[in-house]
Design a protein around this nucleic acid. Structure first.
Lengths: 217, 217
DNA sequence: TGACAATTCAAACACGTGTTTTATACTCGT
DNA sequence: ACGAGTATAAAACACGTGTTTGAATTGTCA
């Protein structure tokens, strides 16, 4: 199906490839995803990837960046007006935000899924991009954690606390296959709201407990 | 290097393949691992896999089962004498046990790493095996969690709590690449003892907090 | 020792996948 | 309407990987 009009379908193939790439890469990861699968879903020829992007790797980069930018728009609603609210509320918001992107089936979640993929299986070429994508989120979380734990908390302790929170969130996504086997209902009909509330409550109590202790290391 | 003696080197190739397979599969996962790599490390011919096991998949099964059995011996030291000790201690022991296998560099850890691999990327043929390997551990954890949360706690609530604990443990292993980029010291010189204590303390507080609340779902 | 089975080996095969090639159809400015 | 540039299409290519093949080597036992 070639471009039949002059304007609004210009670069239509490129756009379709970008959408399909995000879908396939998020689903199968970089290695397992095949260009033929992507092109099939995009109703494009395999050579189109080479023509429009320069190769599979470049397409992956483009798709990642595309969904990253796409996701930035939705980032604003929970991030900025934070400083005033209490840490507990902000933590709940952070978890909910993160989890929503990870578990919601729609397209805007692909970026988070791509990121989750990168966390397990980095493509190596994307280190910079991962840093650019993860660092902001982690800094946001760090502020929350630091507020709960106290400003004097040693660095490693804060980091471990952050990782405990992140771990619970990403787990529900990338361990989905096993959850499917063990507790199917948690993945088939995931009550994101309930899960988020659980993680937030669990984590806040965990963080709160760490606050009092003067950790060694 | 063929078998030069009659007895103690009998099936030496098969054994070497098994060891090398555990190493390579644990490191690269099933898909990314190549039989040539395995055979090279085992100093064996590529056809040896076909001859001794019947193929890559069968070798994977054999390696998984081998390291699973191998790991069962070390299972005994922490598992049986539990019932008497308080839940908090048992939780700490569970975390320490799980984490040690996941993070220690030696061979006995391969089974846990293979299991962690399966959690992210199941081979499909191993569902039964995964269940056999994971279920016991999870039941052990379930007993601990249930004791803390109370016997009347609804099923989903217990499951989510268990997953929160497991998530923190596996995170340190399978998100290693990103941790390498963000917080290198946590992976280069992992203080397993400290990490385990953190997760245990964090989780116990989280569990304890869930106890009082009458959760809706 | 000599025959037979077990094992190892190098080479080739079959197949999937990313990429390239070459040709064809389309768009747009003149 | 025509031609240069752009975009798409089908086929072929290059390479890695699991598997198979058939010969060579080794070990066992009568």
């Amino acid at each position: 199906m070639r471009a039949t009009s002059s304007d609004y379908e210009r670069d239509a193939t490129r756009k379709r490839l970008l959408l399909a790439a995000g879908e396939v890469f998020a689903e199968h990861g970089f290695q397992h995803a095949t260009v033929r699968d992507i092109c099939h879903r995009a109703q494009a020829n395999v050579a189109a990837i080479q023509y429009h992007f320069g190769g599979k790797t470049a397409l992956y980069h483009a798709a990642f960046r595309y969904w990253f930018d796409e996701s930035q728009a939705l980032f604003a609603d929970t991030a900025p007006s934070d400083r005033a609210r209490p840490a507990k509320t902000r933590l709940a918001a952070f978890v909910m935000f993160f989890l929503k992107r990870l578990l919601s089936p729609g397209k805007p979640a692909w970026h988070a899924k791509l990121m989750a993929r990168e966390m397990v299986e980095p493509t190596g070429v994307l280190e910079v991009m991962v840093n650019a994508a993860m660092k902001p989120m982690l800094m946001q979380l760090e502020a929350i954690v630091r507020e709960i734990l106290g400003p004097q908390t040693p660095r490693v302790k804060v980091e471990r606390a952050m990782l405990s929170v992140v771990a619970q969130c990403v787990f529900y996504h990338h361990s989905r296959p096993v959850l499917q086997l063990l507790y199917p209902q948690h993945v088939n009909e995931p009550d994101i709201q309930a899960i988020a509330e659980h993680i937030a409550a669990f984590s806040y109590a965990g963080l709160h407990a760490l606050r009092t202790k003067r950790g060694r290391a």
